[in-house]
């Protein structure tokens, strides 16, 4: 589904990603872990197509398409969803209006008619129930005045509505209390299928207790230095990152 080969990217001439290799197949859950500043969020931004970052080398292929040729919205239409670490506020634009626009733009790109209002409302109700979201939420301006937890829940709600093939959850657990974490994780698990994939970017094991990864990758200084199964995450939780850094030292 997603194949990343030797990806290098920089911002303002400072190289952040220094040769990333990653292969994500349908039905898989990948966790990318790493300390602050290791390049986790850069990776998600580069996959989503944020223009602040310059891709200097390597390739990204998504379902047979070269991502570098696609604008951010085209990547979204292709099925990439990024749950933002810091979702932005858009005053005056209601959640409903925003979602309606987003869904219908994606449909337009696929040559489909806009979704009938009735169907959309039905889908919204379903997904809201799934994420235990109150109805009043729909008419609020997007992310404006939302608490940290509401913002993250709103991200997953949008994901549920847009039904992406690949969901990248960037630090979705930060700012969530234990109940919200459970609800969000539960939502993600319910939406998971054999056809889609999830990449969880996180600092801590916490979220991985709820969303079980098939693969865990450690990102350090712009490179994936170690990969393993879910036990690697537990090991990291216990020992921190220092032992991997040490392990890397002789090579680097």
């Amino acid at each position: 589904m997603l194949t990343i080969k030797n990806l290098r990217a920089s911002i303002e001439d400072k190289e952040i990603l220094k040769g990333i290799n990653l292969e994500v197949k349908p039905g898989e859950v990948h966790a990318i872990m790493g300390p602050n500043g290791s390049g986790k969020s850069t990776l998600s931004s580069v996959i989503a197509g944020r223009e602040d970052y310059e891709v200097t080398a390597g390739e990204m292929n998504f379902l047979g398409q070269d991502l570098s040729e696609l604008d951010p919205e085209e990547r979204a239409h292709a099925g990439i969803f990024l749950s933002f670490q810091y979702p932005v506020e858009i005053p005056g634009v209601s959640v409903t209006n925003f979602l309606k626009t987003a869904i219908n733009e994606s449909r337009k790109a696929k040559g489909l008619e806009p979704m009938p209002a009735k169907d959309m409302l039905k889908a919204m109700k379903e997904k809201m129930a799934l994420l235990e979201i109150d109805r009043s939420f729909l008419s609020r301006s997007i992310n404006e005045g939302f608490s940290g937890g509401e913002k993250k829940r709103n991200e997953i709600f949008q994901m549920a509505m847009l039904e992406p093939k690949l969901a990248i959850l960037d630090e979705t657990d930060s700012g969530l209390d234990i109940d919200a974490l459970r609800i969000v994780a539960n939502g993600v698990n319910k939406l998971k299928s054999q056809d889609n994939a999830v990449v969880v970017i996180t600092h801590y094991q916490r979220l991985l207790d709820h969303i079980t990864p098939d693969f865990v990758h450690v990102l350090l200084n712009g490179q994936i230095v170690k990969s393993g199964d879910k036990n690697l995450a537990l090991e990291l939780e216990e020992k921190g990152y220092d032992w991997i850094k040490k392990e890397q030292a002789p090579i680097g």
Partner: peptide, 27 residues
């Protein structure tokens, strides 16, 4: 960042601007 957020949800830039401007004028 507002435009990128919209883009990421599949909304092209022109449409995103219209959406944001309408939101700004909503009151």
């Amino acid at each position: 960042d507002q435009i990128f957020y919209c883009n990421q949800r599949g909304i092209p830039t022109e449409e995103a601007i219209a959406l944001i401007v309408n939101g700004y004028c909503k009151e």
